[in-house]
Write a protein that binds this DNA or RNA. Structure first.
Lengths: 205, 205
DNA sequence: AAATAATGAATGAATGTTCATTTTATTTTG
DNA sequence: CAAAATAAAATGAACATTCATTCATTATTT
């Protein structure tokens, strides 16, 4: 009884709803992979369909059009990412404790889900996703902003704009992931710790 | 004798070489503007030509094709940017003095030439420019890397990877420019000073 | 048997690029 | 210096191709 047989049984006994979920996920995976390596302009729906193991027409059962596909992928990835990053958030804990946990979880997620991280970096720096969609994505950052505000109030964190705080603590991680993906540079655990120190040093009072 | 007349005289007396330079620059300007607001995939050569006040065919006199256009724009903008930023570099001066001057000039340039800054941010985070072209662009950062090395040797700057140093001092500026361009956030002189402090705090020992 | 999901060839609009022609600039000649 | 000849630059309509999207048909699930 080999693995293919088991997979076959799974596929046969699965409800349609579950199969659809799998198919939709395959399309999203393919989008992440191709947009990351070729860019939005060079990823035709046909290639996307082929990589996802699906017919071009099928994509249009799950997404309105190409723009809608990118928008939805962006939003869903962003939500998944922030859910993971802020799962341990407890407002009653110390500011630095919360911040440190968030920061390390953000880094861990981006290192684990490189395709998603690269995709977000691309979307956040280009006009490939619609502006209103990007706005929606920002909402999910609330816990981080909350912690930063608390830190400012308590005099632990510099009293500077949220944008500055975000710029100096979070965006460097994205840059480092992009670099790690692009060449030999390796973000090992020691570098991660050094990065955290730099992040904290840049905003602590 | 109005301005149009003067312009007309200029155009008439100008050498062909100078006219070509102006035309080429117009194409580059148009590329920056359209790629920034619409993305590479949504800027057809026809629109580019129209905005540059040129016929589509003319673009192909100055650039091999669309990809070559983007590559060349990237390289030339990068070089212009770094030339400006490192013009005051004097290896014999103090590390912090050199670093501060470089940092402020980088910030000033990006604030002054927003279109160029946004374009670089887009190219640095997506596969729109060819990888070998991006590599070429990195060479121009040598002075900054040199100063950082000197700082590490003298124990003034943390002994961490160049990538980390760059990530925490320079990339936040790009992010802030993108944000300023996207909404109401304003990078005023006070914010710039705060940003510099954060940059320095993140890497100084 | 009915309903739902998936297919993929066909369509038509959009777009990168070419090239025969025209316009403009420069050089040569009378 | 002016006119003719040559060279260079620019044009933009035409072309070939690509690609997003549709829909009549087939396959699968309920």
């Amino acid at each position: 009884m080999n693995v293919h047989f088991i997979l076959y049984i799974c596929m046969v006994t699965m409800k349609q709803e579950e199969k659809s979920k799998i198919k939709r996920d395959a399309i999203i995976k393919a989008t992440l992979a191709l947009v990351n390596s070729n860019g939005f302009h060079a990823t035709p729906m046909s290639k996307l369909a082929k990589l996802a193991g699906v017919s071009p027409g099928t994509i249009y059962l799950y997404f309105e059009n190409k723009q809608d596909l990118v928008n939805k992928v962006y939003l869903e990835v962003k939500e998944k990412f922030t859910k993971y990053s802020f799962v341990n958030y407890q407002p009653e804990l110390e500011v630095e404790e919360n911040f440190k946990d968030m920061w390390y979880r953000i880094a861990a997620y981006k290192l684990k889900e490189i395709d998603e991280a690269l995709f977000l970096a691309q979307c956040d720096n280009t006009p490939v996703v619609d502006e209103n969609i990007r706005q929606e994505g920002i909402v999910h950052l609330t816990p981080l902003i909350e912690v930063m505000h608390k830190g400012k109030n308590e005099g632990i964190i510099k009293d500077i704009s949220d944008y500055l705080l975000y710029a100096y603590t979070i965006t460097p991680i994205s840059f480092l992931i992009v670099m790690q993906n692009r060449e030999a540079y390796n973000l090992d655990p020691k570098s991660i710790d050094e990065a955290y120190e730099s992040a904290w040093d840049s905003i602590r009072k």
